[in-house]
Structures are given as C-alpha cells and as structure tokens.
Design a binder for these strands. Structure first.
Lengths: 311, 311
DNA sequence: CTGTTCGCTGTAACCGGTTTCAGGAAGACA
DNA sequence: TGTCTTCCTGAAACCGGTTACAGCGAACAG
C-alpha cells in the first residue's frame, strides 16, 4: 500500500506493521516506472556532455553525480562525441519525455536546440557554457584570463601568446573566448596592445594545441609566454616546446586553465577553477528549477593561480 | 496512436498521414515512462562503478555509453566512492525495480550482493571483476602480469618490485592480485624466487603508491625495476623515484598497466589493455542477457606491452 | 440516544502508453 | 443479393503505482 511505503502519517502503527510484514513475505518490489508515471515526473535528470574529450568534464560530472544522487533523482547519461550523437540526443529529447530536466556541460547550445527545449519547456541548466535565455553556472572566465595575464606580466612577459578553442557558436561565447577577452583586458590595462597574430584557435585537444603552438613558437619574434585556454591545450603547448627544443620556463613560459589532475603531474602552472563544485552547483540549480524552488545562492570558490614549474 | 508511432504495418497510408499531421500540430511527445510501464521494462541499464577513483574506469565507461546508446537503452549511473554509497546503491536495486540489468565495473561483488541480485533475477555483467556465478568480461590479468615481468626480465632485471592494491580493500579489487600472480609465474619460470619483501599493497591511488614505492626504493638492496598494478600507481612510483633522486630508467625502471592517456604524456612504459572495448563488450553481454539472445562471441584485443621511456 | 466529528482504511479513477478484441466497411464469390 | 473473408480501426483492458473520495466505527457533544 502506497501510504505505508511513503510514510504517510495517517496510517495506524498496527496496520503499518501488517503491511510491512506482507511486503517482506511476498518479496514485493515497487516499480519505479509506475511511480514515475503516476507522479507525472520521470524522477531523473539528463546530463549531456562531451565526456571524454576532456578530463575537466569528468571532474565536473563528479560533482553532478554526487548532488543528483543525494536528491533522489536518477542520472541518465548522454555522451556527445560526434555531431551525429549530438543530433540524436536532442532529437530524442524533442520526441520523448524521459527526463525532468537537462544539465548541459561544456557544450554551447545552438539557437534551434534552445528553441526546441523551450518549446517542450524542459528545465535546462548550462555548466561551462552560456546562452542568454538559459540559466547557467557562472565561472568568471574573463577574470581567470586576467589572472593568467597578470601572473605572466608580473614575471616580465610582454609578448604573450594564446591558444584556445575555435569560436564555433555565434550566440553564447565559449569559455575559451571569455578567457581570451580577460587576457586582452589585462594587457590593455598594462599598456600593451593585444596582438591578434599571437592568437591561435583550434579544437579542444592536445594534438591541435600542439600544432598551433608550434606555429606560434617557430617564428623569430615568438612570444615569451603562452596562455592556453585549458590544461589539455597547455599540455599540447608543452609538447610543442619540447619538440622545438625550447626550455620551459626559460625560453617560453606556459600557463593553463582548470587545474585538472595531470597539471600537477606535469608541474604545470595553471588557473584553478572549482570544477567539481561547478557540477554540484549546476545540479542544484537544475533540481531547484524542476521542483519550482528558488535555488539558494551559493557562492563559488574564486579562481586562483597555482604556480608551478612552467612559469 | 501507438500503431503509427511504432510503424506497425497494418495501418493504411492515409490514416498514418492523418495521425502524423495531428501529432505535429499538437506538439505531442510520447512519454517514455508510460511506454516502459506498459512494456514492463524500464528500457534502461544501470552502471555501477567507482568512476572517479581511476581514469581507466572512465575509459571503460566510454565503451559502455556507446554501445548502450546504440541499442536504445538509457544509461543510469551509480557512482560508488564510499562504502555508504555502495550500500545505498545495492539497497536501491533491491527495493525498486528501475533498470533492466546491471553492469558492474571494477567492483568485485560480495556474496550477499550477488545473492540479492539473483533473488530479483536482475541480469548482471561484471567488467574488470569476477565472480563464479556471474557473467563477466575477461581480461587476462595474469597474462598481463607475465608480460610486464617478461619485459623487465628481458632487460636484465632480477629484483623486481611490485606495487598494487591491498587485497582486502573496502571494495576488494582483485585485478591487481591477478597481475601480481602473473609476475610471480614469470619470475619462477625464469628461475627467480619471488620475494614477498619486494611487494607493497595500498589504496588504488597515486599518493599511496608513492609512499609504498618510497619504502621499496629507499633501502640499499632496492629493486632495479618496479611493476605497478596500474598506471595511476605507476605515476606514484615515478614521483617517489624523483623525490629520492633516482633516475628512470637508469636507476630504476618502471612499468604500469592500462595505458590510460597520462601514460603517454609521461612516457610511461605500460601493459595496454583494451579498456574501451571491454566496456562495450560488457554492455553487449548485458543487453543480450536482458533480451534473452545469445551474445555473439567477440574476441577482445590481446594485451601488449607499450614500451616508452621508463624501461 | 441521536447527530456530528474524527481517524483510519478500502475503492476507484488516473497517469499514458501497448495490445487484444470486436466489429464495420469493402471486396470476393456463388 | 446474400454470405464469407479480409482489412482496417475504435474501444477497452492492462501495466503498477498515487491520490481523491467515500465509508465505517469510535468518540464526543448536546
């Protein structure tokens, strides 16, 4: 009986016991599917992310899993590694109602995707991405870019290169783009004119970053420092420097962003951001949106530069 | 109407079109919850794993996600990082029927957990773990241990240390134990008596491995090579060597296991196993079990030693 | 002693699909 | 024209929970 399972207080103790006994005897297991149907909510949240392109996504996921589990929701995973998978996933959301809300991680949404989700009024929260019409967990990427630049400027660097993601999306800037803006802001404040020829853009992976960094570092008037929009890309920069026989940090300094685990292994200086916390926060916002509560405002740890051996 | 959506061939073309039009007009989305209920199957598989203790688990997950998605099942994630989470998860399976089957990764099941799952006859497949009564995806860890040992023996090493998981850890990992057995087998075959004083066991992480390796490498008659049961632990060994001022591979050679991404970054020699493939294979076995098909027998790539700079 | 209230429990409707079943329309054949 | 198939479609039962509602006995007031 439903009232016993859900601890509705109106039932008498004796009856409660009798039902409990019967449940045990019959080995009865309630069906959560039936419960979801009758409640009108699947009791699950979907998480959409390019999980395996970057360790930072996994780290964020960690925070999400924790929080979602605590609140009694199931966590349904949609991995996006190819455009086909992306299209499949969003078509699926449009066609079937199977989750109460969506957490989108490290994936800038396209205009028609936002429109489709809005049409079905499915709550959505973005983490590590922004869109004017959608709630998101803010990371102050501009400030992070400034921090990286200030760190390098303080060490006397004047020619600072940048390796980041290609801006794929006309709406909603990527975090890489915002970090670059921060770099420019800090440069201008220091009286240095930003130099577009020192900026390179590619896919968010080690290989692309290595190629781009090699271009930057090959020339005679190469930058004396490189700011990579992520640790993954910074590792590519380090590889390029090694291949060209440049010493780090003497010939070229390198700073990354995220502080994923490898960063400490490779002694990479980087801007740390609270990845796990951002995932948890995203889950919190989403569940609040689903349940119609006002989310409690929780400040996120600030960004800090972790200085290691590469600067 | 259900017959149109599922393309049941009995409907007339005209009627089919009429229904389609109405669907589009009303913006109707079928509820997958209702479908699951009426079908009697949640159309989802659960994945239970200690996701964040090791990158190798994440890599396996990648294969799982791919295959499960293809077959039209949802993938519900249960992360196990603490004994409490583990108990929660299994209690949950026992109490509510919310998945069609369970894929357990890198988590040896306890006797009572197996009994409980069997009682509810929930199909289960293990990956990177074994149990006499449960199907699993085999990795020939013993052979892997032999390969590592043979690689070191071929380079003249006679005193070979081992750093692996403690046998009675809270989750009871055992692949480490099988790899150690492989090491011993190869040593004996080469006429070398295995030396228990060169074996150290701890938690499956970098920090523990570093401490254990430091113990091994501090003594006068230290081993000339160390076999770590995973790349994660091998990294700890490298750190210990660096702290002690030992050169790798001149003073001490190091070989790991798994070939996760960091291994190539750090130029770590390691035994590669097809992580992603093992996940996909596990998913395949599980879905076959759920649908009552005989799984097609797919051979898994063999283990190989990837030689890099640390040996 | 009757009428009202209160506390608990059994019943039935509902969620939104799938599937079975019965029956109407159209076509075949005598 | 009447009967038998065949083909398609509408209606209804079902999956297994939740919840609104009705009903019943006990307690209590008048």
């Amino acid at each position: 009986m439903s009232r016993v399972l859900n601890d509705v207080p109106v039932v008498r103790a004796e009856m409660r016991e009798r039902v409990r006994a019967a449940i045990g005897e019959l080995g009865y297991r309630p069906s959560s599917t039936a419960r979801s149907l009758s409640l009108g909510r699947p009791q699950a949240v979907g998480v959409v992310a390019p999980f395996f392109t970057s360790p930072s996504v996994v780290e964020r996921l960690r925070g999400v899993v924790e929080h979602v589990g605590e609140r009694g929701y199931d966590l349904v995973l949609y991995d996006i590694e190819t455009p086909a998978q992306r299209a499949d996933a969003f078509r699926d959301f449009a066609r079937r109602a199977r989750v109460d809300g969506l957490l989108v991680v490290s994936l800038p949404l396209l205009a028609d995707e936002v429109a489709a989700l809005r049409r079905e009024n499915l709550p959505v929260v973005l983490v590590d991405a922004e869109h004017p019409e959608v709630a998101h967990v803010a990371t102050d990427d501009v400030r992070g870019g400034e921090l990286a630049a200030e760190h390098l400027l303080a060490r006397g660097h004047r020619r600072i290169g940048f390796v980041g993601d290609v801006a794929a999306n006309p709406f909603g800037f990527t975090s890489s783009e915002r970090r670059r803006r921060g770099l420019r802001v800090a440069l201008e404040r220091a009286g240095i004119a930003p130099d577009a020829s020192l900026e390179r853009f590619g896919r968010h992976d080690r290989q692309d970053a290595r190629v781009l960094a090699a271009q930057l570092l090959r020339g005679e008037d190469r930058p004396t420092a490189v700011f990579a929009a992520s640790d993954t890309q910074a590792i590519g920069v380090l590889e390029a420097a090694r291949e060209l026989g440049l010493r780090v940090p003497e010939d070229v300094a390198v700073i990354g962003f995220d502080d994923i685990e490898v960063a400490s292994l490779l002694d990479l200086t980087t801007v740390r951001q609270p990845l796990r916390q951002s995932g948890a926060r995203g889950a919190e916002l989403l569940i609040a949106a689903i349940e119609g509560d006002a989310p409690r405002a929780a400040p996120i740890e600030p960004l800090t530069v972790i200085r290691r051996r590469t600067t």
